[in-house]
Amino acid sequence: MDTDLGGFLRARRARLRPEDVGLTSFGGRRRVPGLRREELAQLAGVSAAYYTRLEQGQSGNASEAVLDALARALRLTEDEHAHLRNLARPRRAKRRPAERPEQVRPATRQLIEAMDGVPAVVLNRRRDVLAWNALGHALVAGHLDRGAPERPADRPNLQRMLFLDPHTRELYPDWATEARRAVASLRLAAGGHADDRRLAELTGELLLKSHEFAALWAKQSVANCTTGRKSFHHPVVGPLELDFETLQPADGTGHWLLLYSAVSGSADELGLRLLQGTLTAAQSVPAVTADR
Protein backbone atom coordinates (compact mmCIF):
# COMPACT_ATOMS: atom_id res chain seq x y z
CA MET A 1 0.00 0.00 0.00
CA ASP A 2 1.37 3.39 -0.99
CA THR A 3 1.66 4.96 2.45
CA ASP A 4 5.41 5.60 2.61
CA LEU A 5 6.86 8.30 4.79
CA GLY A 6 9.12 9.69 2.06
CA GLY A 7 6.27 10.24 -0.37
CA PHE A 8 4.25 12.10 2.26
CA LEU A 9 7.17 14.33 3.26
CA ARG A 10 8.00 15.15 -0.36
CA ALA A 11 4.38 16.06 -1.07
CA ARG A 12 4.20 18.32 1.95
CA ARG A 13 7.53 19.99 1.09
CA ALA A 14 6.28 20.67 -2.42
CA ARG A 15 3.32 22.74 -1.26
CA LEU A 16 5.45 25.27 0.69
CA ARG A 17 7.58 28.05 -0.76
CA PRO A 18 10.56 29.54 1.10
CA GLU A 19 8.75 32.83 1.58
CA ASP A 20 5.80 30.98 3.13
CA VAL A 21 7.97 29.94 6.06
CA GLY A 22 10.17 33.02 6.44
CA LEU A 23 13.15 31.88 4.37
CA THR A 24 14.85 34.08 1.80
CA SER A 25 14.50 32.90 -1.76
CA PHE A 26 17.35 34.03 -3.97
CA GLY A 27 15.37 33.60 -7.14
CA GLY A 28 16.46 31.58 -10.09
CA ARG A 29 14.93 28.37 -11.26
CA ARG A 30 14.48 25.73 -8.57
CA ARG A 31 14.87 22.10 -9.56
CA VAL A 32 12.01 20.98 -7.29
CA PRO A 33 8.75 22.70 -6.31
CA GLY A 34 8.49 23.96 -2.79
CA LEU A 35 11.11 23.66 -0.08
CA ARG A 36 14.41 21.92 -0.60
CA ARG A 37 15.41 19.19 1.83
CA GLU A 38 18.11 21.44 3.28
CA GLU A 39 15.60 24.22 3.91
CA LEU A 40 13.17 21.92 5.68
CA ALA A 41 15.97 20.44 7.77
CA GLN A 42 17.00 23.96 8.79
CA LEU A 43 13.46 24.84 9.82
CA ALA A 44 13.07 21.61 11.82
CA GLY A 45 16.45 21.95 13.53
CA VAL A 46 17.94 18.71 12.22
CA SER A 47 20.89 18.07 9.94
CA ALA A 48 20.28 17.88 6.22
CA ALA A 49 21.95 14.47 6.11
CA TYR A 50 19.65 13.10 8.80
CA TYR A 51 16.52 14.47 7.14
CA THR A 52 17.60 13.02 3.79
CA ARG A 53 18.01 9.57 5.35
CA LEU A 54 14.58 9.90 6.96
CA GLU A 55 12.89 10.85 3.69
CA GLN A 56 14.67 8.03 1.86
CA GLY A 57 13.52 5.47 4.41
CA GLN A 58 17.00 4.86 5.79
CA SER A 59 16.24 5.98 9.34
CA GLY A 60 13.38 4.36 11.19
CA ASN A 61 13.92 5.75 14.66
CA ALA A 62 12.75 9.36 14.45
CA SER A 63 11.98 10.68 17.91
CA GLU A 64 8.70 12.30 18.86
CA ALA A 65 10.53 15.63 19.14
CA VAL A 66 11.83 15.35 15.56
CA LEU A 67 8.38 14.44 14.22
CA ASP A 68 6.83 17.36 16.09
CA ALA A 69 9.49 19.71 14.69
CA LEU A 70 8.85 18.48 11.15
CA ALA A 71 5.11 18.90 11.64
CA ARG A 72 5.61 22.50 12.75
CA ALA A 73 8.01 23.25 9.91
CA LEU A 74 5.65 21.77 7.33
CA ARG A 75 2.64 23.46 8.94
CA LEU A 76 0.76 20.20 9.15
CA THR A 77 -2.82 20.01 10.30
CA GLU A 78 -3.69 17.84 13.30
CA ASP A 79 -4.77 15.02 10.97
CA GLU A 80 -1.59 15.31 8.90
CA HIS A 81 0.50 15.27 12.08
CA ALA A 82 -1.19 12.05 13.20
CA HIS A 83 -0.60 10.58 9.73
CA LEU A 84 3.09 11.50 9.95
CA ARG A 85 3.39 9.61 13.23
CA ASN A 86 1.64 6.57 11.76
CA LEU A 87 4.00 6.48 8.79
CA ALA A 88 7.12 7.03 10.89
CA ARG A 89 6.12 4.33 13.37
CA PRO A 90 4.06 1.74 11.50
CA ARG A 91 2.38 -0.89 13.62
CA ARG A 92 4.00 -4.27 13.53
CA ALA A 93 1.95 -6.66 11.49
CA LYS A 94 0.37 -9.28 13.70
CA ARG A 95 -0.49 -12.79 12.70
CA ARG A 96 -4.24 -12.69 12.48
CA PRO A 97 -6.69 -15.55 12.55
CA ALA A 98 -8.93 -16.01 9.53
CA GLU A 99 -10.97 -12.83 9.34
CA ARG A 100 -14.66 -13.23 10.05
CA PRO A 101 -17.26 -11.00 8.45
CA GLU A 102 -17.88 -7.95 10.60
CA GLN A 103 -21.23 -7.76 12.34
CA VAL A 104 -23.09 -4.82 13.77
CA ARG A 105 -24.01 -5.15 17.43
CA PRO A 106 -27.76 -5.64 17.92
CA ALA A 107 -27.89 -2.55 20.14
CA THR A 108 -26.31 -0.43 17.40
CA ARG A 109 -28.80 -1.74 14.85
CA GLN A 110 -31.65 -1.06 17.27
CA LEU A 111 -30.37 2.48 17.77
CA ILE A 112 -30.29 3.45 14.10
CA GLU A 113 -33.70 1.88 13.44
CA ALA A 114 -35.12 4.04 16.26
CA MET A 115 -33.77 7.25 14.66
CA ASP A 116 -37.00 8.37 13.01
CA GLY A 117 -36.33 11.02 10.38
CA VAL A 118 -32.53 10.67 10.64
CA PRO A 119 -30.65 8.92 7.82
CA ALA A 120 -28.12 6.62 9.52
CA VAL A 121 -25.41 4.33 8.13
CA VAL A 122 -22.98 2.08 10.04
CA LEU A 123 -19.51 1.84 8.45
CA ASN A 124 -16.16 0.25 9.14
CA ARG A 125 -12.84 1.98 8.46
CA ARG A 126 -12.86 0.78 4.84
CA ARG A 127 -16.27 2.47 4.42
CA ASP A 128 -18.06 -0.84 3.93
CA VAL A 129 -21.75 -0.42 4.76
CA LEU A 130 -22.49 -2.78 7.66
CA ALA A 131 -26.05 -1.56 8.27
CA TRP A 132 -28.37 1.33 7.50
CA ASN A 133 -31.84 2.36 8.48
CA ALA A 134 -34.54 2.77 5.85
CA LEU A 135 -33.97 6.52 5.43
CA GLY A 136 -30.17 6.13 5.28
CA HIS A 137 -30.54 3.55 2.55
CA ALA A 138 -33.03 5.70 0.63
CA LEU A 139 -30.74 8.74 0.84
CA VAL A 140 -27.37 7.30 -0.21
CA ALA A 141 -28.18 4.14 -2.17
CA GLY A 142 -31.87 3.73 -2.94
CA HIS A 143 -30.95 1.98 -6.19
CA LEU A 144 -29.37 -0.89 -4.26
CA ASP A 145 -31.02 -3.73 -2.36
CA ARG A 146 -31.60 -2.61 1.22
CA GLY A 147 -30.59 -6.07 2.44
CA ALA A 148 -27.14 -5.95 0.78
CA PRO A 149 -25.22 -5.09 4.00
CA GLU A 150 -26.51 -8.31 5.57
CA ARG A 151 -24.58 -10.30 2.94
CA PRO A 152 -20.82 -9.77 3.45
CA ALA A 153 -20.02 -10.62 -0.18
CA ASP A 154 -22.49 -7.98 -1.43
CA ARG A 155 -21.85 -5.19 1.05
CA PRO A 156 -21.76 -1.77 -0.60
CA ASN A 157 -18.61 0.29 -0.08
CA LEU A 158 -19.06 4.06 -0.11
CA GLN A 159 -15.59 4.65 -1.58
CA ARG A 160 -16.09 2.17 -4.40
CA MET A 161 -19.57 3.53 -5.12
CA LEU A 162 -18.35 7.12 -5.27
CA PHE A 163 -15.77 6.38 -7.97
CA LEU A 164 -17.22 3.41 -9.84
CA ASP A 165 -21.03 3.63 -9.56
CA PRO A 166 -22.64 6.14 -11.98
CA HIS A 167 -25.80 6.39 -9.83
CA THR A 168 -23.73 7.53 -6.84
CA ARG A 169 -21.78 10.01 -8.95
CA GLU A 170 -25.06 11.62 -10.05
CA LEU A 171 -26.18 11.87 -6.42
CA TYR A 172 -23.50 14.48 -5.61
CA PRO A 173 -23.68 17.71 -7.66
CA ASP A 174 -20.26 18.70 -6.23
CA TRP A 175 -18.71 15.32 -6.91
CA ALA A 176 -15.15 16.69 -6.98
CA THR A 177 -15.38 17.87 -3.37
CA GLU A 178 -16.83 14.53 -2.27
CA ALA A 179 -14.04 12.70 -4.08
CA ARG A 180 -11.28 14.78 -2.45
CA ARG A 181 -12.82 14.29 0.95
CA ALA A 182 -13.21 10.54 0.45
CA VAL A 183 -9.62 9.97 -0.71
CA ALA A 184 -8.14 12.08 2.08
CA SER A 185 -10.11 10.07 4.63
CA LEU A 186 -9.11 6.74 3.08
CA ARG A 187 -5.41 7.65 3.03
CA LEU A 188 -5.55 8.57 6.70
CA ALA A 189 -7.11 5.18 7.47
CA ALA A 190 -4.52 3.42 5.33
CA GLY A 191 -1.66 5.11 7.16
CA GLY A 192 -2.98 3.94 10.50
CA HIS A 193 -3.73 0.38 9.35
CA ALA A 194 -0.99 -0.56 6.91
CA ASP A 195 -1.53 -4.25 7.71
CA ASP A 196 -5.19 -4.24 6.67
CA ARG A 197 -5.20 -6.53 3.62
CA ARG A 198 -8.74 -5.69 2.56
CA LEU A 199 -8.09 -1.98 2.81
CA ALA A 200 -5.03 -2.44 0.58
CA GLU A 201 -7.09 -4.45 -1.89
CA LEU A 202 -9.74 -1.71 -2.02
CA THR A 203 -7.10 0.94 -2.64
CA GLY A 204 -5.47 -1.17 -5.34
CA GLU A 205 -8.79 -1.76 -7.07
CA LEU A 206 -9.60 1.94 -7.15
CA LEU A 207 -6.13 2.86 -8.38
CA LEU A 208 -6.57 0.45 -11.30
CA LYS A 209 -10.17 1.29 -12.19
CA SER A 210 -10.37 5.05 -11.61
CA HIS A 211 -7.86 7.53 -12.98
CA GLU A 212 -9.58 10.22 -10.88
CA PHE A 213 -8.94 8.24 -7.71
CA ALA A 214 -5.32 7.64 -8.75
CA ALA A 215 -4.73 11.36 -9.35
CA LEU A 216 -6.17 12.29 -5.95
CA TRP A 217 -4.30 9.49 -4.17
CA ALA A 218 -1.00 10.77 -5.58
CA LYS A 219 -1.55 14.13 -3.88
CA GLN A 220 -1.00 12.48 -0.46
CA SER A 221 -3.78 14.55 1.14
CA VAL A 222 -5.08 13.32 4.50
CA ALA A 223 -8.03 14.48 6.58
CA ASN A 224 -10.35 12.93 9.13
CA CYS A 225 -13.68 13.98 7.62
CA THR A 226 -15.97 13.47 10.58
CA THR A 227 -18.29 16.42 10.19
CA GLY A 228 -19.42 18.86 7.54
CA ARG A 229 -22.10 19.49 4.95
CA LYS A 230 -22.98 17.57 1.80
CA SER A 231 -25.01 18.54 -1.23
CA PHE A 232 -27.27 15.93 -2.82
CA HIS A 233 -29.33 15.83 -5.97
CA HIS A 234 -31.66 13.07 -4.94
CA PRO A 235 -33.54 11.27 -7.71
CA VAL A 236 -36.79 11.29 -5.69
CA VAL A 237 -36.89 14.59 -3.76
CA GLY A 238 -34.38 16.73 -5.63
CA PRO A 239 -31.72 19.04 -4.10
CA LEU A 240 -30.76 18.60 -0.44
CA GLU A 241 -28.16 20.32 1.74
CA LEU A 242 -27.51 18.13 4.78
CA ASP A 243 -25.10 18.30 7.68
CA PHE A 244 -23.31 15.07 8.58
CA GLU A 245 -21.68 13.78 11.74
CA THR A 246 -19.71 10.58 12.26
CA LEU A 247 -19.74 9.10 15.73
CA GLN A 248 -17.69 6.15 16.98
CA PRO A 249 -19.29 3.96 19.65
CA ALA A 250 -16.98 3.11 22.55
CA ASP A 251 -17.39 -0.62 22.01
CA GLY A 252 -14.01 -1.43 20.47
CA THR A 253 -15.44 -2.45 17.10
CA GLY A 254 -13.98 0.53 15.25
CA HIS A 255 -17.34 1.06 13.55
CA TRP A 256 -18.68 4.49 12.73
CA LEU A 257 -22.21 5.89 12.71
CA LEU A 258 -22.73 8.30 9.82
CA LEU A 259 -25.74 10.51 10.54
CA TYR A 260 -27.39 13.20 8.42
CA SER A 261 -29.62 16.08 9.49
CA ALA A 262 -31.21 19.21 8.02
CA VAL A 263 -31.57 22.69 9.45
CA SER A 264 -34.87 22.93 11.29
CA GLY A 265 -37.59 24.61 9.25
CA SER A 266 -35.58 24.51 6.03
CA ALA A 267 -36.56 23.20 2.61
CA ASP A 268 -33.99 20.46 3.19
CA GLU A 269 -35.86 19.29 6.29
CA LEU A 270 -39.03 19.19 4.20
CA GLY A 271 -37.17 17.17 1.58
CA LEU A 272 -36.13 14.59 4.19
CA ARG A 273 -39.73 14.38 5.40
CA LEU A 274 -40.90 13.83 1.84
CA LEU A 275 -38.35 11.05 1.41
CA GLN A 276 -39.51 9.49 4.66
CA GLY A 277 -43.08 9.79 3.41
CA THR A 278 -42.30 7.86 0.24
CA LEU A 279 -40.97 5.01 2.37
CA THR A 280 -44.07 5.02 4.58
CA ALA A 281 -46.32 5.06 1.52
CA ALA A 282 -44.42 2.18 -0.07
CA GLN A 283 -44.77 0.11 3.10
CA SER A 284 -48.53 0.72 3.22
CA VAL A 285 -49.19 -0.53 -0.32
CA PRO A 286 -50.82 -3.98 -0.02
CA ALA A 287 -49.19 -6.85 -1.81
CA VAL A 288 -50.88 -7.77 -5.08
CA THR A 289 -51.90 -11.41 -5.27
CA ALA A 290 -53.12 -13.28 -8.34
CA ASP A 291 -56.80 -14.26 -8.49
CA ARG A 292 -57.48 -17.93 -8.10
Rank of each mutant, 00 (worst) to 15 (best):
V140I: 14
V140E: 04
V140R: 09
V140H: 08
A141Y: 04
A141V: 01
A141T: 03
G142C: 13
G142R: 07
G142Q: 13
G142A: 11
H143M: 04
H143R: 11
H143G: 12
H143P: 01
H143W: 15
H143I: 04
H143C: 09
L144G: 01
L144Q: 12
L144V: 06
L144T: 05
D145C: 02
D145K: 14
D145S: 14
R146L: 14
R146S: 14
G147N: 06
G147W: 06
G147I: 00
A148S: 14
A148W: 10
P149D: 06
P149I: 05
E150P: 00
E150T: 11
E150R: 15
R151P: 00
R151F: 08
R151E: 13
R151A: 12
R151S: 09
P152M: 12
P152Q: 11
A153W: 00
A153V: 11
A153L: 12
A153K: 08
A153P: 03
D154I: 01
D154E: 15
D154A: 15
D154G: 01
D154H: 14
D154M: 10
D154C: 01
D154K: 09
D154V: 03
R155Y: 08
R155P: 00
R155E: 07
P156H: 06
P156G: 02
P156K: 11
N157P: 03
L158G: 09
L158E: 03
L158I: 06
L158K: 02
L158F: 07
L158A: 14
Q159D: 05
Q159E: 10
Q159H: 15
Q159N: 13
Q159V: 12
R160H: 14
R160E: 11
R160W: 13
R160L: 10
M161T: 00
M161W: 04
L162R: 01
L162I: 01
L162C: 12
L162V: 09
F163C: 05
F163R: 05
F163E: 02
F163G: 07
L164M: 15
L164R: 10
L164F: 09
L164W: 08
L164D: 03
L164K: 08
D165T: 07
D165C: 05
D165W: 01
D165R: 02
P166I: 03
T168A: 15
T168L: 04
T168N: 00
R169N: 06
R169C: 01
R169E: 00
E170Q: 15
E170D: 13
E170C: 13
